[in-house]
Computed example of a mutant assay.
Amino acid sequence: MKSSSTHKVKAMEQRIRELERMIGQKQIKIDFLEKMIDIAGEDLKVDIRKNFNTPPSDGSGNTQEK
Rank of each mutant, 00 (worst) to 15 (best):
G24Y: 00
M12K: 11
R49W: 00
S3P: 03
V9H: 09
V9E: 12
D38V: 04
R15C: 09
N53C: 02
K66W: 15
E65L: 06
E20V: 15
E13N: 12
I16M: 14
G59D: 06
S60Y: 06
K2M: 08
K10V: 09
K35G: 00
G59F: 00
K2C: 04
I23M: 03
E34V: 01
I16G: 03
Q14S: 09
E42C: 03
Q64R: 11
L44Y: 13
G61I: 03
M36W: 07
A11N: 07
K29F: 11
L19V: 10
M12A: 07
I23D: 01
E65Q: 05
K35W: 10
V9Y: 08
E18D: 11
D38A: 03
L19Y: 12
M12Y: 07
E65A: 04
E34W: 01
E13F: 05
H7T: 11
K8R: 10
S60N: 15
E34R: 12
M22F: 06
K26W: 09
I48S: 00
S4P: 02
Q64S: 07
D43E: 12
K45A: 13
D38L: 07
M12E: 09
Q27N: 05
G24T: 01
D31C: 01
L44K: 13
M1R: 12
K66E: 10
K50F: 04
P55D: 11
G59K: 00
A40S: 11
I48T: 04
D31Q: 02
K2G: 09
K29L: 14
V46H: 02
M22D: 07
D58Q: 07
I28H: 15
Q14L: 06
I16T: 13
S4F: 05
N53A: 05
Q64W: 11
E20C: 08
M12C: 04
D47L: 03
I48M: 10
P56K: 02
R15D: 13
K66S: 06
F32L: 10
V46R: 04
E13R: 12
I37Q: 04
N53T: 12
R21L: 15
R21G: 13
L44T: 02
P56S: 03
S57P: 03
K45H: 07
G41Y: 05
P55L: 12
S5P: 04
K8H: 05
P56F: 01
I16F: 12
E65C: 02
D58T: 09
D43H: 11
A40L: 08
S5T: 15
L33S: 10
I48Y: 00
L19G: 02
R21S: 15
